[in-house]
Amino acid sequence: MADATGETQAGQQIIELRHVDKWYGEFQVLKDINLEVAKGERVVVCGPSGSGKSTMIRCINRLEEHQRGQIIVAGIELTSDIKNIDAIRREVGMVFQQFNLFPHLTVLENLVLAPVWVRKQPRREAEETARMYLERVRIPDQANKYPGQLSGGQQQRVAIARSLCMKPEIMLFDEPTSALDPEMIKEVLDVMIELAQEGMTMVCVTHEMGFARTVGDTIVFMDRGEIVERGSPQELFANPKNDRTKLFLSQILAH
């Protein structure tokens, strides 16, 4: 739970999902999801397509609504209350598979948009932060270019910087490298690994098992809407206990 100042302490639970269910119409897409993420923990979620992994992390910042169960982020319960949703979104950053950069704004304008309009920062301060993060993701000279002029890998790194400019406590990644050409995957994964090494709490949906092994504290395997198995990378990859896990791992680790 959060302490008196509202900040979560290292090691405490920063995300809790308790008995979360979600339906699309009559189809149940999340079944009794129970998950706890500690501050500073790195969770990698994997599973076949349609397993609900993207839906689950999108519930965390209310891009999707859950119908039953409880979701508590940084001590705030996620309900339809707009105040709660706004507060949670300020603390949770999200990186999308399709980057979703704003094409009509320059890279710099993409980065300062939210700090200026949501955190109400002065523009100069926001720009300083933005340039700092552009350096961190190693593209400081692209500040005045438009997203359409950048490569896929560069765009995704800008997207990561854009989320970081809001100084979130948690970063969610929804298949961040799936839309990239192979030669650009590494530059994005490198940025994510650096982020992890600095202690960022991360929940990442990905197929990159090498990344999971390097950085992940917990691997969560989902199938058909439920969490089937979870464990440390060493345990899960070497000794999967569940048949469905074994099947999935055999398919993606084959090559």
Partner: peptide, 14 residues
């Protein structure tokens, strides 16, 4: 590790 059942959970009604 937290291995749950091999069969999928039955779906419930919303």
């Amino acid at each position: 590790t937290d291995a749950t059942q091999d069969l999928p959970l039955p779906a419930e009604r919303p």
